[in-house]
C-alpha cells in the first residue's frame, strides 16, 4: 500500500510500523530520518562528540545533515547541547580551555577540524547572531561594514553598497537610511538585533547561525526577525536555536530535538511537530516534559 498517498499529514511507512511496534526506531532508520531528502547537505555532522573538560561529555555521537538554503531549528531543554553544537560549526568552542571533540563536522564537504584549515577563514564563511544583540559602540554604518574594514576594504563605494545591501536584507534600511551615522546603541532592541543580522551577513557568509535571536524581543520585533529569516534562507543556510516551539514551527523547514546531549529525532518540521516518531520528542514539544 502506498501510504505516501495519504494526506494531509503524510505518513511514512516507518511511522505506520512504529504503531504496531512501539519499540524505538532502529538506529539505521533514525539516521535516515536525520538526512533531509532532496536538498544537498551543507553541514554534515558525523559521530560527533564534545567534552567541555575531559570528564564532562556534553554531546554524544551526533550524526545529522543540514540542508543547503533551508532553515534548520535546534530545539530541546536548557543544557541539552544545542548551543554547544551550534558553536562548534564555527569552532567558537575552541576558545574555551580544556575542550575536546571526536567525530567530524563538514561544511560544504570540508572537514572543519582539519589541521590545515584556517579558523578565521571558516568563521568568515559562517555568520553568527546571538541571544542578546551586541552592536559595537559605533555608528549604524560602521557596525555593518566592520568586517569589511577589518579585512582591509577601504573603497567607500564598495562599503556603501555593502552597507545598503546588508541593511536592506536585514529589513532595516528604511528605518535607518537617514541616520546611518547615528550610534547603533540608540536603536530599539529589535532594530539592534536586525543590525547584528545585517553585520553578520555583510561578508556574505554561506551559513547563518542564530542562537535564540528573538528571546529578548517583543512580538512585533520577533515577527520581523522571523519574516527576515524566511527571506534570508533564499541566500543562506540558516541554523537557529530556539526555545520557542511556535517559532520553530513557523520559521524552520527541518527541526532537530536534543536531550541530554543526544540527538533524539530530526525530521521535516511539519512531521516532527504533527507526528514525532519518538516518545521523548512528543513529550517535550507538547509540554509534558517529565
Amino acid at each position: 500500500m502506498n501510504l505516501a498517498k495519504l494526506e494531509p499529514i503524510a505518513m511514512q511507512k516507518e511511522n505506520v510500523e512504529s504503531l504496531s511496534n512501539t519499540a524505538s526506531l532502529s538506529s539505521a532508520l533514525l539516521e535516515r530520518k536525520n538526512q533531509a531528502p532532496g536538498r544537498p547537505d551543507y553541514i554534515k555532522v558525523s559521530n560527533f562528540s564534545f567534552n567541555y573538560v575531559p570528564a564532562v561529555r556534553v554531546l554524544h555521537n551526533i550524526t545529522m545533515d543540514i540542508p543547503e538554503k533551508q532553515v534548520t531549528a535546534f530545539i530541546g531543554p536548557s543544557g541539552c547541547g544545542k548551543t554547544t553544537l551550534l558553536r562548534n560549526f564555527n569552532r567558537m568552542n575552541d576558545l574555551i580551555d580544556g575542550v575536546s571533540q571526536e567525530g567530524k563536522i563538514y561544511v560544504n564537504d570540508q572537514d572543519i577540524y582539519d589541521r590545515d584549515l584556517e579558523v578565521i577563514s571558516l568563521r568568515k564563511r559562517i555568520g553568527m547572531v546571538f541571544q542578546k544583540s551586541n552592536p559595537f559602540p559605533k555608528s549604524i554604518y560602521e557596525n555593518v561594514v566592520y568586517s569589511l574594514r577589518v579585512s582591509g576594504q577601504k573603497n567607500k563605494e564598495v562599503l556603501d553598497e555593502v552597507a545598503e545591501k546588508s541593511l536592506r536584507s536585514a529589513a532595516l534600511w528604511d528605518e535607518t537610511k537617514d541616520r546611518l551615522q547615528d550610534s547603533a546603541l540608540g536603536l530599539s532592541g529589535g532594530q539592534m538585533q536586525r543590525l547584528c543580522i545585517a553585520r553578520a551577513i555583510a561578508n556574505r557568509p554561506e551559513i547563518l547561525l542564530m542562537d535564540e535571536p528573538c528571546s529578548a524581543l517583543d512580538p512585533i520585533a520577533t515577527a520581523k526577525i522571523e519574516e527576515l529569516i524566511s527571506e534570508l534562507k533564499q541566500s543562506f543556510t540558516v541554523v537557529i536555536v530556539t526555545h520557542n516551539m511556535q517559532q520553530a514551527t513557523r520559521v524552520s523547514d527541518r527541526a532537530a530535538y536534543f536531550y541530554l546531549g543526544k540527538l533524539i529525532e530530526m525530521d521535516d518540521t511539519t512531521q516532527l511537530f504533527s507526528n514525532p516518531s519518538q516518545k521523548e520528542t512528543e513529550d517535550y514539544i507538547s509540554g509534558r516534559f517529565g
Binding site: M1, N2, L3, K5, L6, E7, P8, I9, M11, N15, V16, E17, L19, S20, S274, N275
Partner: peptide, 24 residues
C-alpha cells in the same frame, strides 16, 4: 488522533491494507 493518518476517502483497498498493517 491515534496515528496521524487521514483515512478519509482513501478507498476500501487502501483501507484494508492499512488495517492489516496495523493488525500485524
Amino acid at each position: 488522533v491515534g496515528s496521524a493518518t487521514d483515512i478519509r476517502h482513501i478507498g476500501p483497498e487502501a483501507l484494508s491494507e492499512m488495517a492489516s498493517d496495523y493488525g500485524d
